[in-house]
Amino acid sequence: MSTPALCIRGLRKAFPKVLAVDGVDLEVARGEVFGLLGPNGAGKTTTLEIIEGLTTADAGEIEILGLTWGRQGQEIRSRIGVQLQSTSLFNKITPREALDLYGSYYPRRRNTQELLELVQLVEKADAYHITLSGGQMQRLALALALVNDPELVFLDEPTTGLDPQARRSLWDVVRRMKGEGRTVVLTTHYMDEAEALCDRLAIMDRGQVIATGTPASLIAELAIPSVVELTFEGTAPDPAPFAGRLGQPVERRADLWEIPTPDPKALLPRLLEAAEGAAIPFQQVHIRRATLEDVFLHRTGRSLRE
């Protein structure tokens, strides 16, 4: 148990037109839920696929459960569970059959019925794969990732495209995995998901890890625990003149202005006075805690969703 679940050094992968992974180092301890957070195209999926053995890296070292791909590939495969970003199965296979079949590839396997119950697919157990909804397909993919009772589970964007309720139920399954002592590595571009699920995070952008830590420590490092938001009807006006008047940076995002501050209580009266003086037509004022979104914005100058 002393070796980490996953240890990566200097991982690099270039595709003909893009440097997808540019020197990534990661270490994931056993039993933790580790998140790779970043916008689309940050290199999360490529990193994961290299770890899973689907893509070969140009350079770098990977140790998975103390094993390496070169000689111990089969043992790695039998001890990890993988959910791909899109799991394409044979159209006319049922969840029960898929779990039985994929389970048969492993030396150790979990009971199919138990897995169906875990991901709440008992009612759809005998329906053809093509007839399942997006959420049901994702839950089946999750069950398939658990079919070999893996020590280490990789989930690539497990909740993308799901409705809020389906996301919550998937989160529950991930928490159950952690409860069972498994290590989970997941990618996401939802900051709320990363905050809700992950013990530790690596924030990725343009093929590089730009920050690592617990969600709380990453936010704390910002030293701006709060953000005051002014919302407008329609697109927010240019904040530059107002920022000058206020003597503090103001950022515009779609229909709102954001003013990061370590002390909202002190800012608020000044802000309202300045806004009234400049006749700013804002609708509402919100004060919120800083999030991972703000961490990303602060470090890259760009929003996660861009």
């Binding site: 689907l54 089969q74 495969r77 993988v82 791909l84 899109s86 199965l89 590839y105």
Partner: peptide, 13 residues
């Protein structure tokens, strides 16, 4: 092409 083999590739089959 449709990625159906990728799911098999991560198993020890």
């Amino acid at each position: 092409e449709k990625g159906k083999f990728r799911r098999l590739a991560v198993t020890p089959l």
